[in-house]
Amino acid sequence: MALDAACRECQNPLPAGARFCNECGLPVSAVPVAARRRGAAALPWAVAGVAVAALAGVLVLRQPADTVAPAAPAAPFAQGAAPGAGAGDPTKVDLASMTPRQAADRLFDRVMQAEATGDMATAKQFAPMGIQAYGMVEAPDADARYHVVQLYRVQGDAAEARAQADAILAESPTHLFGLFGAAQAEMVRGDTGAAAGFYRRFLAAYQDEVARGLPEYQEHQQGLPAMRAEAEKATTAR
């Protein structure tokens, strides 16, 4: 890429090596433009070397689940930003100063908030960036993998969402995030029977799993009851 390039969508000047536009979030197509410099206040969304690709964020998810339906509901615990991700307007934060996990969580929040407000165009625009960002996180834990489940769910990719849930279950067969994520993946696929099966396993494991006091359960302790309620509705409706 040339020293200066412009976003093909909004013509915003981009730093060398940028993968996404820091104004509109569109993947960069390097189009050289006359050198136009912004002041030091410009947000560094792309950083050379080991930096995280473009990100932003603030999360919340909510969809009704009266029945096990092909369109999977969002994660009930997605109300607060992930630790270290911060809050407020993400465009005012220097994302280059964050760890890869913090930046990935921030973009996940952006996708979830957009979905919660019905802005699916934005949610689907940023979901691939979030998936790419989590791919830069070394040794992702169950919480990170569950976030990726949700990003693939937003994209409507049941196979990849299920693969991430299975990775959680491979390490811990009764992990609530793995079971709930697998159920959501099957809902996206349209296999309501398989989804209900995972929801029942979730309910059967719930008390013992919560008692384990895993860090991810403690972090999302306010959201877990909502997940249980969703699973109960999905199974009793059958």
Rank of each mutant, 00 (worst) to 15 (best):
E9L: 05
C10M: 03
Q11C: 01
P13L: 07
P13Q: 07
L14A: 06
P15R: 15
G17A: 10
G17I: 03
G17S: 11
G17H: 14
A18T: 06
A18H: 05
R19W: 00
E23P: 02
G25T: 06
L26G: 01
L26C: 04
P27R: 09
V28R: 08
A30W: 15
A30G: 03
A34P: 03
R37V: 02
A40D: 02
A40N: 06
A40F: 01
A40I: 02
A46W: 01
V50Q: 15
A51N: 12
V58H: 13
V58A: 14
V60A: 15
L61A: 15
R62I: 04
A65I: 01
D66Q: 06
A71C: 09
A71M: 10
A72V: 08
A78R: 11
Q79D: 10
Q79S: 04
G80C: 08
P83T: 14
P83Q: 14
G84N: 12
A85T: 09
G86W: 06
G88A: 05
D89P: 11
P90I: 02
P90S: 10
T91A: 14
V93Y: 06
D94Q: 06
L95I: 09
S97L: 05
M98Y: 13
T99L: 07
R101Q: 10
Q102W: 09
D105Y: 14
D105P: 05
F108P: 05
F108H: 11
F108C: 09
V111D: 11
A114N: 13
A114G: 11
A116N: 15
G118R: 12
G118W: 11
D119V: 08
K124T: 09
K124P: 06
Q125V: 01
Q125R: 14
Q125H: 10
F126G: 07
I131M: 03
Q132D: 00
Q132T: 00
Q132G: 00
Q132L: 00
A133C: 02
Y134R: 02
G135F: 00
V137P: 04
E138I: 01
P140N: 05
D141T: 05
D143R: 12
